[in-house]
Design a protein around this nucleic acid. Structure first.
Lengths: 198, 198, 198, 198
DNA sequence: AATGAATGAGACTTCATTCAT
DNA sequence: AATGAATGAAGTCTCATTCAT
């Protein structure tokens, strides 16, 4: 893109400016916006500015493209959470930091992460197993975070996790970017609700 | 069906044995199982045992059929919650009863209700407004239930609602019918987590 | 077509004038002329005067259409041979009659039969087994015809059959309709060559 | 190959290890196995281990590649027959030797020759004339062979040729490599059938 | 109320081929 | 001689929908 500005012409087919990154970004954006089945190969191609068939230089099927977007979504949200909790040692603040990172990813920052909470693996049978495996990779992080919490004896930590993640993952269904509450504020509220009160 | 019971014979009365109920049931089942876009008009027709074109005797478009299923889903889950809280006066037990009813509907009993938590209104633009209006009708119930709770001053009741409903609505994503926890147990766990502890 | 001449308008979608027979005829013609893989669904549809998708009202795949053409080809050539030998009792004249019928079918009369000697079952894996079974049905006729021949002891009747049928089936590769020799003449020549002389 | 033998090392000489021979061999193999239209440029390229585009360093079109395979097929089967009849003077034994060579080529040895009896020139219009010319070159050999036969007066030698070659060329349709009869045995049987007895 | 055949648009995908590198 | 990315046309097939019967 810069190149074309500099040279004054949209160079075509240099090895350097492969469209692959653009394809992934566009696919991620459309998948999380319109859903997987609601997005056509044509949609993606025309948003990138190539022909539909050209997508198949990079991915052998549309399902495969989804899988590629999905792994990256999991990678990125894992990394975001990891980074967010890195500097904090206390269990509850760590959990809150993770929630902030998670919400920021799926509400604002990261189309790839959004895809992870938007697309149901079982709706895409040919890659369902891969997607589920990826998703589980992410959930493992939360297992650890919640295990570390000083919860009253007898608390069902599995229910705790399912509930918290459910509440977070559902947020894209009602969240409006222009709303009052930032992801950070939301996370604080959510955690406050869960924290055993003195 | 009732008709045949009354008349004592499976007579082919033009009105009595209309396929409409069957069509709705089937559509509800498929929509909540495979999603709206993942379900074709043919899927529904062939499950009912009629031809695709015959569906258009009852609905003018597939989107319309969805809207019909969706209203009924909201009606039914409203009624279920209403019934569940009818005999209880205390705020927290009422909330728990509502949660039980909600979870039982979307996890076990009611394909129509499942559709409501499965299909995103905005994915079906032509009827999106109707669906949203229906869904809001349901959420109003929860507003009232939560308003009645004796929560610590300063609690953000909107966040409370969004969080609780999010946690509930996300449950179909991980719930397995054969699992250990019944909807009732789950609801109890969830409420326990939210209830300010003494 | 006649109808449209009479009524003055190309009636569309009456139940009576289904395009199915026309589709089969056209497919047979194109398959035997251009080969199976050399014929596109579009070719067939546009020759019939319908849209490509409309073919799928009658056949669920292109391969299925081929199978339908193929069975009919076998049926027809079986019937033609059957009819040709019905009035003859002597073994050699029966064989000659069969050859005449066979050659007339695959050289002049019958696009369906031509498909049978043009398309290799193994080239269309999804229906290969069905095609082979059909083809074998036809070869059984020849087994009987050749068994009845008074050949010198020690003649390999299997080789005889394979050779004769091979010679016949290869004929479309060199036969020109405008040529001198009619199928009937050819058959006579061929049989003469095989008949033990003297 | 020779090059590496001579130099004693699999040196990457620009000319020596050209992929051209491999491309031809692979194309011949796939064309005779799957047919011309059933073989894609990608099939060939990936079997050779290069990219589809790289084929166009050697051939300007897929049709051209076919033509190259086809000429070589004709060359090789001509040579095989030539060699087979070289040491024999008697007409019938010469014919039988030719049949053996022909059958061995198209049933066992020679993918190139197989292509010649598999692909219909008219299916590939752009090179049809070249293919036909090549094929005729081969048939000329048989004209001579059959002309030399001491056949009963009045025998139609053209029919004789068409019939014999047809029977031979059709053999790939039923021959199984693991079967009992070798090409040599088959040829003997076939000739026996044609030879005037007594 | 339902059928059977068709429509027209568009789905995903594959093809032979090109061309700067 | 070969690559990698892209083209443009065409491939088979599916979709929601229509309409005379």
């Amino acid at each position: 893109m810069m190149a074309s500005v500099l040279t004054g012409a949209p160079r075509r087919s240099a090895h350097a400016d492969s469209r692959l990154p653009q394809i992934l970004d566009t696919a991620a954006h459309l998948f999380c916006t319109q859903g997987y089945q609601g997005t056509t190969v044509r949609d993606i191609a025309s948003a990138v500015g190539i022909l539909p068939g050209s997508l198949y230089c990079h991915f052998s099927t549309k399902d495969d493209l989804l899988a590629a977007v999905y792994v990256r979504g999991v990678d990125q949200i894992c990394a975001a959470v990891e980074a967010a909790i890195a500097r904090t040692a206390e269990p509850w603040p760590r959990l809150e930091a993770a929630c902030v990172a998670h919400l920021e990813a799926i509400l604002r920052d990261d189309d790839y992460a959004r895809v992870v909470v938007r697309v149901r693996p079982t709706d895409v049978p040919s890659v369902a197993q891969r997607l589920i495996k990826d998703r589980n990779r992410y959930e493992a992080q939360w297992l650890a975070l919640i295990k570390a919490l000083p919860l009253p004896a007898g608390t069902d930590r599995k229910a705790f996790r399912l509930m918290l993640l459910g509440a977070l993952n559902w947020a894209p269904n009602w969240y409006r970017a222009d709303g009052a509450a930032s992801p950070r504020t939301l996370a604080r509220h959510f955690i406050a609700m869960f924290k055993p009160h003195g």
